[in-house]
């Protein structure tokens, strides 16, 4: 239990961020027309590609002699990039079609 309180004290700022972000997320999505649900889902999909940063961090922190680790990290960066690039490009392609409309 002591450890738990320690954890709260050490991470209180991050916990605040989590709580605030939950409300921001709810506010941002409420009242969006159904027309935009698909692009929005796709855009959100690209944004969670931010997990690629974790993959890069893991690579940078890794012991350079840990070849299995490097291989897994390499794969993680490739897949993370797929998520980010594919996600943003697909969303852009969807939204491109809305451009001529008023």
């Amino acid at each position: 239990m002591e450890g738990f309180f320690q954890f709260i004290n050490d991470n209180i700022e991050m916990i605040y961020i989590v709580v605030l972000m939950i409300f921001v997320g709810i506010e941002l999505i409420s009242h969006v027309p159904a027309v935009l649900h698909t692009p929005l889902m796709s855009g959100a999909n690209a944004i969670h590609g931010v997990v690629i940063i974790g993959a890069i961090l893991a690579m940078l922190r890794m012991d350079p002699h840990n070849y299995t680790g490097l291989a897994i990290g390499f794969l993680a960066v490739v897949l993370g990039t797929l998520n980010v690039v594919g996600g943003f490009v697909v969303t852009d392609r969807m939204l491109e079609m809305f451009k001529t409309q008023k």
């Binding site: 991470n11 991050m14 961020i17 997320g25 999505i29 649900h37 999909n45 969670h48 997990v51 974790g54």
Partner: peptide, 27 residues
């Protein structure tokens, strides 16, 4: 992704992850 943010104390992962997690749930 948000759990990854906690792991690395990484604000970009944390904000991006929680944002999508909460917005995605509402969606």
């Amino acid at each position: 992704a948000a759990f990854g943010g906690f792991l690395y104390d990484n604000m970009a992962m944390l904000t991006g992850g929680v944002l999508v997690g909460s917005a995605g749930t509402i969606l």
